[in-house]
């Protein structure tokens, strides 16, 4: 058997940092990465931690991930400057399919997990929800796209849940495939709306990960290994995953509600 695998952090210099919105930054590297939309990388900040991040930009010359400062790790990422070094390994996981007549519905930073998908799709409808106008990212990037916005406070676009816009779009437009990433409660709603309307849906899940390559077993959702079987799952798979929208495992492996999972620092 040939075992020339290498899955150790590759130390790269940050080439550029773009402020995207409130506490949200895109960290760029002048390197190529062989990845598909929906795949993720493990980002290693020496001395601090290593976490999964979606690849949010990808061109022939560079790639980036977008991080929102919430915990200890992402707050340390926020302080980095161009020239600082990070370790990158991956890409990992299975990505999105690329279907026609698609609608991409994102919530909050979930947008960074579907951005390279949007770049690849042919004129998809984008429905994007966030807390307020200041939390919206990539607005310039998508100014030529078919973009509908919803905010909780009504400071931009529709005031209310982005799923209301999805229900409307599914009735009025010819949509055959929905892609989603965002808070899991939102994705569960999207999944249910798609089921009701008999439209295929793919969702990108987030769980605590140690390895990213199917060893540590902490990212299990029912019998699915999120880092290798996912992170993108189809409606057909989600139907057999009762833990989707309900529970997740802490770093210790203990099963808790999604609410407790998100409230627990790692």
């Amino acid at each position: 058997m040939n075992c020339i695998n290498k899955n150790a952090p590759r130390i790269l210099k940050i080439s550029k940092i773009v402020n995207e919105g409130l506490g949200q930054k895109s960290i760029f590297f002048n390197e190529t990465i062989d990845s598909k939309p929906g795949q993720f990388i493990m980002v290693y900040l020496p001395g601090v931690d290593e976490k999964p991040m979606a690849i949010s930009y990808k061109t022939r010359k560079e790639f980036a991930f977008t991080s929102q400062a919430v915990g200890k790790f992402t707050k340390a990422i926020e302080k980095l400057k161009p020239g600082d070094k990070l370790g990158i390994r991956g890409p990992y996981g299975k990505g999105f399919s690329l279907k026609k007549n698609a609608c991409v519905i994102a919530g909050g930073v979930g947008m960074s997990s579907v951005s390279t998908l949007i770049d690849k799709l042919k004129n998809p409808l984008i429905i994007y929800g966030a807390r307020s106008k200041n939390h919206l990212i990539y607005l310039k990037r998508y100014k030529k796209n078919n973009l509908e916005i919803a905010t909780d406070d009504g400071s931009s676009g529709f005031k209310g849940f982005n799923t209301v816009l999805l229900e409307k779009a599914l009735k009025e437009k010819k949509i055959k495939q929905v892609y989603t990433c965002g808070p899991e409660v939102m994705m569960e709603k999207v999944f249910n709306i798609c089921k009701k309307n008999k439209v295929e849906c793919e969702a990108s899940l987030e769980r605590y990960m140690s390895c990213g390559f199917g060893v540590c077993g902490k990212c299990m959702v029912d019998d699915q290994i999120v880092c290798v079987d996912g992170p993108v799952f189809t409606s057909k798979q989600l139907l057999k995953m009762p833990e989707f929208g309900n529970s997740a495992r802490l770093k210790s492996g203990r099963k808790v509600s999604l609410q407790e999972y998100h409230a627990t620092p790692t």
Binding site: C3, K6, N7, A8, Y44, E50, K51, S210, C211, K251
Partner: peptide
Amino acid sequence: GNNNPTMFNEG
């Protein structure tokens, strides 16, 4: 358990 990196592979 420990913080990451907790594992890696080389060859």
